[in-house]
Every structure is written in structure tokens, then in C-alpha cells.
């Protein structure tokens, strides 16, 4: 019988309890697929975020006067349009969850003590929840023409006071 030139190595699958005596399924007694969905989420949201963020950067930094054009009137003009409201809302949620999960992974990798991990992740989830709440409220409750505002600072479509 011919000796194979290269050893074929079986790739461990998540259902395998062990391959060649080494235990690969490290999930213990927990029987949910959270980590698999987190892994999948990073990939799916990552692809969508490339489109959303590249578009965001192009419109805000490359078109017109770039960063110099950004002021209250610019944001008001954008968010008067449901297209940009939706764009920014989806971008906010996808990016915050993507980033939070990424930092969660980093905490799990480097914080060795159970208690340190617990508090770092508690802080992370509280901060992310707060940012998501604030960001979502701002997008939904924003008024481009606030009453009593300096007319020179609001978008040009606002009615004269």
C-alpha cells in the first residue's frame, strides 16, 4: 500500500466531541449556538458595513468641501431625507453591535480573571447600550428647523422665522 505523501487532517466541526483524543467541543454543558451566530454576524454585518461606511465617508469627506462642509445645516439637510435617516440608523446598529462583539472577544482573550472579564463586559454592554439608545433617539427625534434657532445656522429649506 502506497504511503500518502501528506497526512490528511480532519477539520474539527463544532459537533465533534473529540478528534484523535483531543477535546474540541469546549462549550461544556451549554447547548446554544450563540458563538456561531456571533461569528456569522461579524461576517454578514462586516460586508454590509463596508458599503454603508464607505458611502458615509465618501459623501461626508470627499464630496463638496469635505469636512469643512459639515455643520448643523449639513446634518439637517441629510436627515430631512428618510433615505439618509435609514442609512445612518442601520449603520449605527450594525457597527455598534459589530464593535461590541469584537471588543467582547478581545476581553475574553486577554482578561484572565473571571471577575475582571465580568466587569469589563458589563461596562462594555452598558456603554454600547447607552450609545445605541442615544444615537437612535437622536435620529428619530431630530428636528432640522428647531424653533428659536439662529436662521443662519439651520438648513436653507427651513421657513423664515
Amino acid at each position: 500500500m502506497a504511503t500518502p505523501l501528506k497526512t490528511r487532517i480532519a477539520v474539527p466541526r463544532s459537533r465533534d466531541n473529540s478528534v484523535d483524543g483531543i477535546k474540541y467541543n469546549r462549550s461544556g454543558s451549554k447547548r446554544n449556538n450563540f458563538e456561531m451566530f456571533a461569528w456569522l454576524y461579524m461576517r454578514v454585518s462586516g460586508v454590509l458595513l463596508i458599503v454603508l461606511i464607505f458611502g458615509h465617508l465618501f459623501v461626508n469627506l470627499m464630496m463638496g468641501d469635505g469636512v469643512h462642509a459639515i455643520d448643523f445645516g449639513f446634518v439637517g439637510g441629510k436627515w430631512a431625507n428618510p433615505f439618509w435617516q435609514t442609512w445612518d440608523l442601520i449603520m449605527l446598529w450594525l457597527a455598534m453591535i459589530h464593535g461590541t462583539n469584537g471588543v467582547r472577544t478581545v476581553i475574553d482573550d486577554y482578561a484572565e480573571k473571571d471577575r475582571t472579564r465580568f466587569w469589563l463586559k458589563t461596562l462594555l454592554f452598558l456603554a454600547s447600550g447607552f450609545i445605541l439608545l442615544v444615537g437612535t433617539l437622536v435620529i428619530f427625534t431630530f428636528s432640522p428647523c428647531p424653533t428659536g434657532a439662529d436662521p443662519s445656522l439651520v438648513p436653507s429649506f427651513c421657513p423664515a422665522p
Binding site: V103, V134, V138, D150
Partner: peptide, 30 residues
């Protein structure tokens, strides 16, 4: 990938907060 990811995440936190100033007043945001 990790270093850029963490840097982008912290910028994102700040960036949502600075954008939230549009809700305070045009002057504060500008």
C-alpha cells in the same frame, strides 16, 4: 485587525456622542 478594530470602536463611541449634539442646539454642534 484587532488594533484597528478597537481604535475604530472607540472613535465610534465619541462620534455618536458628538453627532448627538445636533439635538442640543445648532451652536453646540457647530
Amino acid at each position: 485587525h484587532r488594533v484597528t478594530g478597537i481604535a475604530i470602536f472607540f472613535f465610534l463611541l465619541v462620534h455618536v456622542l458628538d453627532t448627538a449634539l445636533v439635538r442640543v442646539s445648532p451652536e453646540a454642534y457647530n
